[in-house]
Computed example of a mutant assay.
Amino acid sequence: MNIFRLRMVWERLARDDPYWAVLTAPDKVGNQWKLDAFFQTGIEDVEASLAVIDQHCPDLAKDRALDFGCGVGRLSQALAKTYQSVVGVDVAAKMLELAARHNRAPEQVSFVHNTRADLSKFPAGSFDLVFSLITLQHIPADLIRSYLPEFVRVLRPGGVIYFQLPTSVPPEPIEARKWSWYPPTMATRLKRWGGRWFRRFTGVGDPMRMNALPVAEVESLLQSAGAHMVAIIDQPVTDDCPSNVYIARRPT
């Protein structure tokens, strides 16, 4: 999946059911999230995460933070309670429209639309914290490999990266991979073929997918970019989807 296709998937999700797309609670599908409850989960997630960061990096400066994959600003708003300035970045313009609408601290929180496989919109050494939860798991592996070194590049000396990423994902159900080589009509065959290639190049109609990188590769990418690993914390997404939270730091 290329960056354009990823963007199209998330633009569609932002139009159809944006808050559930950000936080997929089973009972909230179909625009069932209440905004106060939705943003309260961001406060709780950020407070718990910052407490973990403080345990490992108590001297971390709290001036400027980057919320990567910010969506509608669920975590950006919460980070602004601790950081003087927060920048949320996302691939979907529609998500950012909603983030701006819900922005309760515009003097502290801003949002940037990024459709590149890098973070070149930000100069090196821009942030004390790069923060990302339940985002990288929805980005194809090749793009994850592009973004992780960029996380290090935009860190200030002594800055910290805190992100979550699965180590493996469950296989796609056999039913989802079935293909009939004998459709009843040529029109059906052409429709299937055309739809398959249309989805491949645009992402329209694609579901939200899970992606992963093994621990050793994550460590290698960060170390090659100049960061050292501080902690790896087991935090599974589901019983069949193991996941870690990574804390890495750029040397001073």
Rank of each mutant, 00 (worst) to 15 (best):
V72W: 11
A105L: 13
T185H: 11
N2A: 12
G125N: 08
P157Q: 10
V230L: 12
S224W: 00
K121L: 13
S85F: 09
P170D: 08
H56W: 15
G42L: 12
A37V: 05
A80P: 00
V87S: 00
D16Q: 15
A216W: 07
F201D: 04
Y162P: 06
L136V: 07
Y182L: 11
V52D: 02
D239G: 10
L213N: 02
C241G: 05
T41M: 15
R192H: 08
Y147A: 09
Y19N: 08
R177C: 03
T185P: 06
V204N: 10
V112D: 06
D36L: 14
P140H: 05
I134H: 12
P58L: 14
T82G: 04
R104T: 13
D16H: 14
A92T: 03
P58D: 05
P207W: 15
W20N: 05
V245I: 15
P140C: 11
D234F: 09
M210H: 13
K191H: 01
L66Y: 05
L129P: 09
G226N: 13
T167P: 00
M1E: 12
E97A: 01
R156Y: 02
G158M: 13
A248R: 03
S126V: 02
E97Q: 01
Y182Q: 09
D206Q: 10
L213V: 03
F122S: 06
L75R: 09
L221A: 04
A105W: 09
K191I: 04
W193V: 12
D36R: 14
R15W: 03
T252I: 05
M8Y: 01
R116F: 00
D142W: 11
L222Y: 09
N31P: 01
Q108F: 05
D45M: 15
R153E: 07
P183W: 10
D45P: 11
Q32P: 00
H113K: 09
R250F: 10
P166I: 03
A99D: 11
S180G: 08
Q32H: 02
R145C: 09
V160W: 11
V237R: 11
W179P: 03
L133R: 15
S146H: 08
G226L: 12
E150R: 14
M210F: 14
A105G: 06
A248H: 08
K62Q: 01
L6Y: 04
G226V: 12
D27P: 05
S85M: 08
W10R: 01
H138P: 00
R249T: 00
L66H: 03
S110V: 04
A248S: 13
G226D: 12
S180P: 09
V86R: 00
A65Y: 00
H138Q: 06
G88F: 00
A99F: 15
H102E: 15
L13I: 08
R199H: 02
V245W: 06
R74Q: 15
L60W: 06
F4M: 13
P166T: 04
I233H: 08
P123G: 01
Y19R: 04
L13R: 08
E11P: 07
A78R: 02
L155W: 12
K121A: 11
V230K: 12
H102D: 14
K94H: 05
A25N: 09
R156L: 07
V160P: 02
Y182V: 07
S146C: 10
M8L: 04
L133V: 06
